[in-house]
C-alpha cells in the first residue's frame, strides 16, 4: 500500500466513525448518568430497539424527522420510567429487571414491526438524516468533512455531552446525583432526596437510549430489521466502565468503536480471503479486550445496582 492510499483509508475511517459511534454514544451517555446515580440499566439494548422502531414508524408515516426523534425519545422516557418504578420504588433486582426489559424491548420491537410491515416483506426504507456541510470549513482537506460535515444530531449530542459533563462535575445537583450513587444514606442526611435523583437519572437514561436507537434506524441504516442493534446496548454499558463514569472518556471509547465498525467494513473489501464472520466478531472481541484492559482500575459508584431502602 502506498502512502496516499493509507491517508485515504484514515480519512475514510475518520469520516465514517463519528456517525457509527453515535448510537452507542447516546445510549452510553444516558447509562453514565444512570450509573452515577447508582442505577445499573441493563435494558438499554431493549430501549434502543424500541427507539429505533418508533423513530422509523413516525418518519415512515409522517416524513418528519424531528418528530420521529422526539417520539423515539418519548418511548425511551416511558421505558425509563417503568424501569424506575421497578427498581427504585419496588426495589426489584436490577440485573434481572434489566435483562427482562431487554427481552421486552427486543420482542416488542419485532412484534410492532411485523404487525405493520408483515413478517417476510422487504424492510421499509426511509431517507437517512441529511448532513450539514459548513461552507468552506467542510472542504478543508482531511479534517474538514469529518469535523464540519456531520448531521445535526451529532452536534446536538456533543452539546449534550458538554452539558452532562458540566452538570455532573461542576454543579451542586451533579454532586448530589453522584453522592446518591455513592451512598444514598449520606445524600439523605445532606437533605437530598435519593429517589428523586434516581428517577431523574433513569428517565434521562431511557431518553438517550431511545434517541440512540432512532439514530441507528434513521441516520445510519434508514430501515429496521429484527434485532437491529445487535448488542450495541451492551457495548454501551461496557463503554461506561471503560470511560470510568466520565462522559468525555466514554465519548472517546465510543469513537474507537465507530472506527472498529468502519474498519471491518473496509477490511472485508480489502482482504476478502479472511472469512467475513471474523470481521463481524470484531466489535465484540474489541469490547472484551477493552474491558480486560480497564481491569481493576475502574471504580464503580459504591451503591451501583443496590436499592435504597429508607431508614435501613
Amino acid at each position: 500500500m502506498n502512502e496516499s492510499l493509507i491517508l485515504l483509508l484514515i480519512e475514510t475511517i475518520l469520516i465514517g466513525m463519528v456517525p457509527r459511534a453515535m448510537p452507542i454514544f447516546s445510549a452510553a451517555l444516558g447509562e453514565t448518568v444512570d450509573q452515577s446515580a447508582g442505577i445499573l440499566n441493563l435494558g438499554v439494548e431493549g430501549m434502543m430497539l424500541m427507539g429505533a422502531i418508533t423513530g422509523l414508524l413516525v418518519d415512515y408515516y409522517y416524513h418528519n424527522i424531528v418528530f420521529a426523534f422526539l417520539a423515539a425519545g418519548a418511548v425511551g422516557i416511558l421505558f425509563g420510567a417503568i424501569h424506575g418504578v421497578l427498581v427504585i420504588t419496588m426495589k426489584l433486582d436490577q440485573t434481572v429487571i434489566g435483562t427482562a426489559l431487554w427481552f421486552v424491548g427486543w420482542g416488542l420491537s419485532g412484534v410492532i414491526y411485523a404487525a405493520i410491515f408483515g413478517i417476510s416483506s422487504a424492510p421499509p426504507t426511509v431517507q437517512t438524516l441529511g448532513h450539514i456541510y459548513i461552507p468552506y470549513l467542510s472542504s478543508i482537506p482531511f479534517f474538514g468533512r469529518f469535523i464540519f460535515g456531520e448531521d445535526p444530531l451529532v452536534y446536538i449530542l456533543i452539546v449534550t455531552l458538554i452539558v452532562v459533563d458540566y452538570f455532573l462535575f461542576h454543579t451542586k445537583q451533579g454532586l448530589n446525583l453522584r453522592t446518591v450513587g455513592q451512598d444514598p444514606r449520606v445524600a439523605e442526611i445532606m437533605g437530598v432526596n435519593p429517589y428523586l435523583y434516581r428517577y431523574a437519572a433513569v428517565i434521562f437514561g431511557g431518553l438517550m437510549a431511545g434517541i440512540g436507537g432512532a439514530y441507528l434506524s434513521l441516520a445510519i441504516v434508514g430501515s429496521f430489521y429484527f434485532d437491529l442493534t445487535a448488542g450495541m446496548g451492551f457495548i454501551a454499558v461496557a463503554l461506561v466502565y471503560f470511560g470510568k463514569w466520565k462522559p468525555w472518556r466514554v465519548f472517546a471509547g465510543t469513537l474507537i468503536f465507530g472506527a472498529v465498525y468502519v474498519f471491518y467494513f473496509m477490511m472485508e473489501n480489502i482482504y476478502p480471503k479472511i472469512p467475513y464472520e471474523f470481521y463481524q466478531m470484531l466489535p465484540y472481541v474489541v469490547t472484551l479486550i477493552m474491558i480486560l484492559i480497564i481491569g481493576t482500575k475502574a471504580r464503580a459508584p459504591a451503591s451501583l445496582a443496590l436499592p435504597y431502602v429508607k431508614g435501613e
Binding site: T99, A100, F103, W106, G107, G110, V111, Y113
Partner: peptide
C-alpha cells in the same frame, strides 16, 4: 396467524418481571 415468534421474548420478559414481583 403471522404472529411473529418475537412475541415470546416479550412474554418471557414480562413473565420475568411479574414472577420477580
Amino acid at each position: 396467524y403471522s404472529v411473529p415468534i418475537d412475541l415470546v421474548i416479550t412474554i418471557y420478559g414480562l413473565i420475568m418481571i411479574f414472577s420477580l414481583i
